[in-house]
Design a protein around this nucleic acid. Structure first.
Lengths: 220, 220, 220, 220
DNA sequence: AATGAATGAGTGTTCATTCAT
DNA sequence: CATGAATGAACACTCATTCAT
């Protein structure tokens, strides 16, 4: 139940955050996602990317400064696209709790739609501490801030416990989703990643510990 | 409150899961942790590790099959040591909830004691999908199974909600801790990582949503 | 004394041996001189030359066969222009000694007017033995022959010692001027190169060794 | 005639300024001379040098920082060796004029012994203005200073004209020899380069212009 | 066991040249 | 004539690994 009309299926599929047509820049970027996901960034050759994109090696350098810039551009594009989608999706929702639910669903939905994208995001983004720092202080923190704002709004609205630290709650939320995605990538079973959204949310929202079904009322 | 005598400070400091003396095998492994944490696995040269360890390049190959084997050995040693510590620490505890609490604390305590170790564990372990698959299906899953057992025990004991999926709960728990560690590595502030254990646990155990202050309302 | 009206200042400035206007062929050639002088032939890119000339890369190939042809054309143009100037300048002079003096002056004057030109001539012309052979047996030897003829004429006229080998004298003469130019390029002081003409000539004409101020006879 | 006992033939042949045995550093350097002379610096591949030296590509980098360092080392070694030989050869000579003569002979003798060496020295040394500046302000100027001192000593001794500028005389002297060498490289005839020493010296010392045989003629 | 000199396969990047527009 | 995007051959340099000592 719930979440009935929400358009999981964005007409602009996540995988196609890059205009799928013509545009050689995007063709190369898509090829890089495929290749990096297959072999990992360090084990991928620029010429692999070029071949996958159907261009000459040198052409890659007409559109990207160097190999690193390829990875950088992929992740920037992903996060930009994702953040925009999330903003658009939660804007109409009034309840912060509903918004948080929507973020979780979109997060998993997006990564679950394109395994290659997910691999790059979950694995290759960590290819160096420098690289991670770069993103965690820029693009990624933009996303995390968004989540944190929702959580704080939820506290004001009385939907979330006032005593929890919103910063930590954000990390717990993000970490939980991130781990689901990482596991999904590694697991052989191809159950849709988005299926995990509901149970994860239930856990995060209501905790491991049972609510004292209180009083006698339940038994009554 | 609580957890008074629990020996946070294992007499065998985490960093020295490798016997700190003589043993050239361990000297090289420690050197590798330092070097990999500093530059990342791919940007580290075997000769860097050798120099750090004070041995000749060729000597590394007397103890390790190749460069990959170095990283593999580090993580295996880390996880073996960690799992052993966790088992020992939770054995005397009877309440699964107390056990889970102890795991969280130890997890963060261990990584927080040695940033290099944490960097390798959080970042370098992901240096390839193959590598991750290798671990997630072996060592790491041994750790995750341990957590899962505690959660299931907690469900039987009535300490955790019976309806939650223990497998998913395990991932949420691990993912939350993992994210705390990753963030701690990247953050400049050097607040002890273990300080995060309590608030994270509170969030996971009791959820984001306030418990209905029960009483009248429910019965109303 | 002497050489009063000789037009050091050719109305066609040396630098503009290439018609300075319109003509795209010459525009590119001038750009090439600038660029080659700045970075050296091998470190210059065809696209640098194109940009300097304000044309597209491909346009360079409409006027020159390839990059080598650019350098070749520069030096050919320089030497053609120079030889023509020299011929014109010495034609009216009757004394071979005066002619030789004029050649020295013009030689240094021309190179000293345009450092870029000098750099290309002194440095880049030597970019390969093949290249040098090409020129030394063609254009350059035309210039050297000119000098040699003047020297031989001087011998017949009794102005130069009959016993000297004109071929060797030519090389000594050219080598001395060449070295002055090379040094001038490298030196920081920007004293006009042509200033060196007089002292060099004095040395070459009268030698290092003092003329026996001859005994008393002269005074007699 | 003249120059009877002077040991043109240094027991340590010029070509072997590099100990010809074992020493891999020198083997590579000799290979580089051969290869650079054959194809020119820019057209030579490091792997060509390695093959010529009979070592692996990587080995070159154990002894030289990079390709540029190869050329740099060649010329430094040449000049060091040459300057030492010249100093030793002129030390016993008392007459500056005899010393200058000896320098000219040695200069041409050395280059004439090993065409490859000469090619590198005459052609490749100019592979860039930066490179030339480097040498002209260091090693080469040490050589030029040596010549200049001899000329100045000759002036004091009354062997050379007092009014000539020693700095310019040095350049004229060096330039003349340099040009002889350059021409010899390019010429097909293989007449010993050192044969040119005597006529060149005669020209430089006594000039192009005949000494007034004075006496009667003038008064006639 | 330990060494470290030697190896040589591997790759990111450049840039002269072409050609469809 | 002119363009400049695309090409792809070429190459300096690195570094994991070996092995004679």
């Amino acid at each position: 139940m719930a979440r009935p009309a929400t358009p999981h299926t964005t007409d602009k599929p996540v995988a196609a955050m890059l205009k799928s047509d013509s545009n050689k820049h995007d063709t190369i970027l898509r090829a890089a996602i495929t290749v990096f996901a297959r072999n990992g960034y360090f084990n991928s050759k620029v010429s692999d990317v070029a071949r996958e994109a159907g261009v000459a090696d040198g052409t890659v350098y007409l559109y990207f400064k160097n190999k690193d810039d390829l990875l950088f551009s992929i992740i920037t594009a992903m996060l930009d696209s994702f953040i925009a989608q999330v903003r658009a999706a939660i804007a109409p929702l009034t309840s912060p709790l509903a918004q948080l639910r929507e973020i979780a669903r979109l997060h998993l939905d997006m990564l679950g739609r394109n395994r290659d994208l997910a691999v790059v995001f979950e694995v290759e983004i960590r290819h160096s501490t420098k690289f991670m720092e770069e993103f965690s202080t820029k693009k990624l923190s933009e996303y995390l801030d968004l989540i944190q704002q929702v959580i704080e709004a939820g506290q004001h609205a009385g939907e979330f416990r006032p005593e929890i630290n919103p910063r930590i709650a954000t990390k717990v939320f993000f970490g939980a989703l991130d781990e689901m995605a990482t596991n999904w990538i590694l697991s052989r079973r191809r159950k849709p990643l988005a299926d995990a959204a509901e149970p994860v949310l239930d856990l995060l929202l209501y905790g491991f510990v049972p609510r004292q079904t209180v009083s006698s009322s339940s038994s009554a």
